[in-house]
Simulated assay, not measured.
Amino acid sequence: MNPASLILLAFAMSTDAFAASIGRGAELSKVRFISALRIGIVFGVVEAIMPLAGWALGHVAMQFVSGIDHWIAFAMLALLGGHMIRAGLKKDDTRSPADTDAQPGDKSIWLIAFTALATSIDAMAVGITLALTDINIIVASLAIGLATTLMVTFGTLLGRAIGTIVGKWAEVLGGLILIAIGVAVLYEHLVGVVSA
């Protein structure tokens, strides 16, 4: 996976958390930077851990699927992307379970972490897919965590001005990016087979 694909993947993985943070920010009359950053860090840490867990699972399974790994990576990314697009298109409320307090920093860290976990399940599935590709999982996980921290902090801060509509389309864009990465993985393998 080239650096451009890695950056796209990192930001695609952060779009569902970004959508939730926009919904959160849209409900607040005033958002403090430190509170938004705290939520961003929690989401970023959880989002960075999940691909590592998925990668470990995928690495164990790789010995059984090495001949068709590129097809599995393509199918999983396409399914995840399609799911994100569908969820984004039918979503009319981007509220998360932590969306009931007046300020983002007022909620317990555990409830925020639970919300982060709920929005990062797809990152675990992507981690399984990454075990089937030639990528440094530490770099990928750090990139995903950093992108999520930035996107959630930014989304929380700008949610009031942007509104909930953008959150829906961010998830659709993330889904399209995942599908494009899946196509790129399949293309790179098939071109490599043809030229070999």
Rank of each mutant, 00 (worst) to 15 (best):
A116G: 04
G145T: 06
L178A: 14
A36P: 07
H189N: 14
A75I: 09
K91A: 05
I34W: 09
A78P: 11
G145I: 04
L117C: 05
W110K: 07
A118C: 03
M124Q: 01
A4Q: 13
S120T: 04
R160Q: 08
L28V: 06
L9S: 13
D101F: 02
G127Y: 02
L157G: 06
A56M: 11
A161E: 12
L8C: 15
N2P: 14
S5F: 08
S195V: 15
A20R: 07
I177L: 15
A143V: 07
K30P: 08
A161N: 13
H189K: 13
A19E: 06
T15K: 10
T133G: 09
I109V: 06
G182R: 08
S21R: 03
L8A: 15
V185T: 15
S141V: 15
F43Y: 05
V46A: 00
L37Y: 12
I112D: 01
G105K: 00
A180P: 12
D99M: 00
I144F: 04
T94Q: 02
V139M: 11
V65I: 06
S35D: 12
I22V: 14
E47F: 05
V126I: 07
G175A: 08
M50Y: 08
T119Y: 01
L6N: 15
G167V: 12
L6T: 13
I72H: 00
L130Q: 05
L146T: 09
A131Y: 06
V183K: 11
I39Y: 01
T100M: 01
D93H: 01
F18E: 07
M62A: 10
T133I: 08
G105Y: 00
G67D: 07
R38I: 06
Q103C: 02
G67V: 03
